[in-house]
Design a binder for these strands. Sequence first.
DNA 1: ATGATTATGTGGCAACGGCAACATACTTCT
DNA 2: AGAAGTATGTTGCCGTTGCCACATAATCAT
Lengths: 222, 222
Amino acid sequence: MNEEMLSKTVLFKGLSKEEIHDALLALQARELLYKKDASILLAGSKTDKMGLVLEGSVRIESNDVWGNRTILSHVGPGQFFAETYAFLHNEPLLVDVVANKDSRILFLQIHILKETNAATHTWVLKLLTNLLVVTAHKNLVLSGRSFHTSPKTIRGKVLAYLNSVALQSGSHRFDIPFDRQQLADYLNVDRTALSKELGKMKTEGLITFEKNHFEIQKSADF
Amino acid sequence: MNEEMLSKTVLFKGLSKEEIHDALLALQARELLYKKDASILLAGSKTDKMGLVLEGSVRIESNDVWGNRTILSHVGPGQFFAETYAFLHNEPLLVDVVANKDSRILFLQIHILKETNAATHTWVLKLLTNLLVVTAHKNLVLSGRSFHTSPKTIRGKVLAYLNSVALQSGSHRFDIPFDRQQLADYLNVDRTALSKELGKMKTEGLITFEKNHFEIQKSADF
DNA sequence: ATGATTATGTGGCAACGGCAACATACTTCT
DNA sequence: AGAAGTATGTTGCCGTTGCCACATAATCAT
């Protein structure tokens, strides 16, 4: 396991190599590989493990009985998922976690933190604090999606989403982590209607795009 | 301040009266009163205080430039808000916090937790762990709303929401914390269209309601 | 390369919902 | 009690979007 790389993640920030090594052992860290579109965690089940994406990416989604999919978020390398469920530890998952590409995932039994003696293990307090940062950020991501889906028109949703990605990337040229169907499922709209609207927005000069690369025209920053 | 009552909240669970007293001092606890509809925290500002609703209730909402309101959640007595922002502590708020009734709020400078010596203060570790439970639950609330808003028809949204409230209350008869306009803003739909759909659902025998009291007919549990 | 599979875009149609204007309760205040 | 304000429901119309069927483009496997 690469303690070097882990120390750059939010969760292990501020921990020494030795502390990380110790923590990985205590939390029973396990590495697993998943093929694209393989499901990692299933809605309705329970988990005591949180995941760290080492390579690839995963998406958090929900599939109802009628086949409607809602994508809640995309989790890239160095980011975490299921920490909420792993920590609470007997809440059934409301969502599925699916590999978006071939992925390498590190699992951590984070609930063990609650039972570990912080006095004798210097890393416990650090991990708890860092985990709080992780869940707090996750909160921001979830509220963020609310703002992307709340506009009533497709155009409104698309602009809300693209502006937010542009803001984060610090540029008006950027890639999005979704294909069309996924973007539609993230914004809770019909894919073909999304395609139509994207087309219109391109003709009107608001945006340009090709595949998953987008550019927002300056005039559109209103 | 009532340590008795506080010890029943998620955040102070497991702390002794003395620990709570100590913590309140260290976190510079302040109690404030708000009139119905007074704003407590403003989007765009930053806060280093999280709130605990002692009496009354607040709502978390977002108001865009065109006057569209989106309600993210309702926070009742004994529950917390703004813990995300208070802990991260220099993230600008994405939302407004507004008093839904006349309310008594306890504010805590929770970020002080990060700088307090856990070795000499027994309550620090407990509060950190409990705070993690709070943010984890907040995550579930936020994902929950996603499932209430993702159906494409108003009826679908209403049923998703009502079923979820029924499940939590453990009964098919329950009160909701929203008036019509607020419910519409929570579900991201037009109020009059919501009224129409509720009316239809009543005539069809799916639900009955009066003001904010609802009943789901057993046949509707599909 | 060729065919098969997947991704994206287009056209048409019906319906759901947003909006405006109004009607009818129900509160609150003096 | 009466008036003013607020909450909820109703009606009608038009636009947006969901959905279906299909076209075209891109990707993958052999």
